[in-house]
Nucleic acid binder design. Structure first.
Lengths: 191, 191
DNA sequence: ACCTGAACACCGTTCAAGT
DNA sequence: ACCTGAACACCGTTCAAGT
């Protein structure tokens, strides 16, 4: 598109991530290639390799960008009171429905193959969910404790629900589930 | 490997699916290519296109092969009595842990882009889960009814749980969840 | 310190031609 | 009815060389 006259791009790393976020939903994750991204940024096919060791490293960085956006949405949904979890559950599903390809990438097996500490926002978002659950489930007056299994149960439920919806796994010819109601039902899990 | 002297392979379609099931876990889903499959079967790179319209159609057929295998395991786990769901939940998770790449393919967004009726075993496996849930939740004496939302809730929970486990999404430095106990907890959902 | 050009080994897919 | 050979347009990745 816009061709830079400068030899050095200056912000190529950021630009490649921006272009990835921009095109992942329309082109699909399979449609993202470092070559086409480089082309859009107006640099050569080899340029991205000065900023990412390989495609997997790039996709990992893109996934963490996604978690950064998710954290913003979760922060906003983290209202005080008992409907805290329902609110965050709704925000979680809304994020995934708005950015299905990005959500899939963020939760792909690629993530665990990345070097330790390379996805700080992924960790942050998970801790935000666990912390909200801890606050809600603690009896007043007692020390709130983090129940790992309960947190995983709630996470598994909303994660599975979101994927069944965005991946279109539920049969088309059966009566459609009430996705919003199901997402809001997360807090009652394992209580 | 073994080169056929015959010009016509005879069972190329079945052979390609067999080779796919055989190599998907070691090579990964990304590592499967129609070209390499054709090579292993001893035919030309173009031969697979006489049996599958494109790669997506092949992967769809491979996914349904996976559902056929899953149905066999679920049938075996469908014991009488109240622990029916716990037994099927355990079988479901065992299948996914044994064949993670195949499980991911079976539940990928690819499935809903396939022509209607092209994945009969996928449908069968889902109905088996719903039917088991229906039997367990019905009060004795009353007409058992299928609660779609309750079925989706249970499915979402076990699906999310399985994916968090096989995709390695749970942070390595936190105490590991009790996966088997969590899988067995599925029946208590939304009861 | 960052980028390019050319090259290598792979893909999916098509199509005229072979048996 | 089924398969091949050659071709086209793409990939990821490397590396000597340029600024």
């Amino acid at each position: 598109m816009k061709k830079n006259d400068q030899y050095h791009h200056g912000h190529l790393r950021e630009e490649l991530l921006r272009l990835g976020l921009e095109s992942i939903e329309t082109a699909g994750t399979e449609g993202i290639s470092l070559r086409s991204l480089a082309d859009k940024a107006g640099v050569s096919k080899a340029a991205p390799y000065r900023h990412f060791s390989d495609k997997e490293a790039y996709l990992g960085a893109l996934a963490d960008e996604g978690f950064r956006l998710l954290c913003i949405d979760l922060e906003r949904a983290d209202v005080a009171g008992t409907e805290r979890i329902a609110s965050m559950g709704a925000a979680y599903m809304e994020f995934a429905v708005a950015r299905p390809s990005l959500y899939r990438l963020m939760n792909s097996p690629l993530l665990c193959r990345l070097p330790d500490g390379s996805t700080p926002w992924a960790r942050k978002s998970l801790l935000m969910l666990a912390e909200a659950l801890r606050k809600v489930r603690s009896d007043p007056g007692t020390e709130p404790s983090l129940d790992v299994d309960a947190a995983v149960a709630a996470w598994a439920y909303i994660h599975g629900l979101v994927l069944i919806r965005i991946d279109g796994l539920f049969p088309r010819d059966l009566p459609a589930p009430d996705w919003a109601r199901l997402a809001a039902a997360a807090p009652s899990l394992g209580a």
